[in-house]
Design a protein around this nucleic acid. Structure first.
Lengths: 233, 233
DNA sequence: AGTTTACTGCGCACGCTGTTCGCAGTACGG
DNA sequence: CCGTACTGCGAACAGCGTGCGCAGTAAACT
């Protein structure tokens, strides 16, 4: 039986007893676990326990773990509200980008979710809407709007993923190479096979700065926005 | 005991019997399974069976499943070679972007891997090197090189993720909304809460084109490259 | 050459996972 | 007030990652 996506199913059935929990309650519990102990700690049993309910009761609310993830994503996306538009597209897009990045940094598991299908919950749609709104101006055709929005969101997500990966690896890749396994760094540099990579490892200052990720993000974001500017009138 | 990363450990020990398999053999087997049956099918047992060996023998080669993933990533990255430089940074960067995207589309599981730490295998480093090489010119400071390379790679990965997600969801999000659950689409459009999103769903042509992803990628890539151009002399 | 040493292959076992099934209890529609 | 469509959930199943310990083997040292 092909059940419709969760966003189409009514939260409360017409007949039968009142469900003991709401979807948002479930999502909140799962997000709480993921935030505190990582995505791996989010199991059906664990979330059920967190709610004080039986494990298999969860399946009354959710079609399987994938749908639980869907709920989590949309809940996390509701953690911040899209910024109010100023009318200046560049300012608005930058605001969206920073706000999205903030959400992803606050919920590190978010960018690591399998992502096997688009999540179309209300909060996710709201962000999509805000992004389109910032990009959209009369005269710009819809395809260009799609492309620009995709460019930005895609960039933010990719950056957040890379950032979190490096953050959690304990430090910068350069640091990782030089400190935690200096021999490997020496090998890489000494091999002469990676001259440009070597130059980065030696010369770059950003990797050593405390706020490196913030600065790198801001800098890269400027690049992207400048690129987008060229695609508009 | 804190074992060093796999790239630092010798493949063959000084003493003891000759290992029955090579790392690359193992990586190839795992990649084969993932390509054919998806990431979920890649289990230690399954890969071991594929190699005709005992399950726990794998742990002689690999510290755990995470390291198996590391091997898979680097193997996949070796599936294509970085394009030969032309000297024109924009052409070279575009070539890197397209080649990277091709790899990710060929191995859909690649962008879905947990990515809890950077992979530093030889093939991955080669791609990093190629990217830096394309961006790097005398006079450009190392931080700017890092930022530009990060922008590009990050964008490519993010785009590939989104693309694969939508591809595997069966169709475009717009299609998904309108076909597979028309009621939801009507609800979304009819609610009036998402005006710009609605306009995209109605007006955009790209979502209906067969080569939509190729065109969207090319278009977005141009935006990014244009943005990068501004950061150079 | 013989002994020591450090490895390899791997069966067993443990605790955990997602999910199916079936049954008892409940609240609403007619 | 009954039938019906739901809810909660315990039991069970197949599969997972992985630690442990033991037998076998090849290189190093004496």
């Amino acid at each position: 039986m092909d059940r419709p996506p969760i966003w189409l199913r009514p939260e409360r059935a017409a007949r039968g007893p009142r469900p003991a929990h709401s979807r948002d309650e479930i999502a909140a519990a799962a997000v709480r676990v993921a935030d505190a102990e990582g995505l791996a700690a989010v199991s059906m049993r664990r979330v059920a326990t967190e709610l004080g309910t039986g494990t298999t009761s969860l399946y009354r609310y959710v079609d399987g773990k994938d749908e639980l993830f869907d709920l989590m994503v949309d809940r996390a996306m509701g953690d911040g509200r899209p910024p109010v538009p100023t009318g200046n597209w560049r300012v608005d897009l930058a605001a969206v980008a920073h706000a999205q990045r903030a959400i992803m940094l606050r919920h590190p598991w978010l960018v690591r979710l399998p992502a096997t299908r688009p999540v179309l919950g209300p909060n996710t749609l709201a962000w999509l809407e805000a992004t389109y709104a910032a990009v959209d101006v009369p005269g710009l055709d819809a395809d260009e709007v799609l492309a620009q929005a995709a460019t930005l969101l895609t960039f933010v997500r990719g950056h957040a993923l890379e950032e979190l990966t490096e953050r959690e690896a304990g430090s910068t890749m350069a640091d990782w190479l030089t400190k935690q396994s200096q021999r490997y760094a020496e090998q890489v540099i000494g091999s002469g096979v990676y001259p440009h990579l070597s130059r980065m490892m030696i010369e770059a200052e950003t990797p050593h700065a405390a706020d490196r990720f913030d600065r790198l993000f801001a800098r890269s974001l400027e690049h992207v926005l400048t690129g987008l500017a060229a695609g508009r009138g």
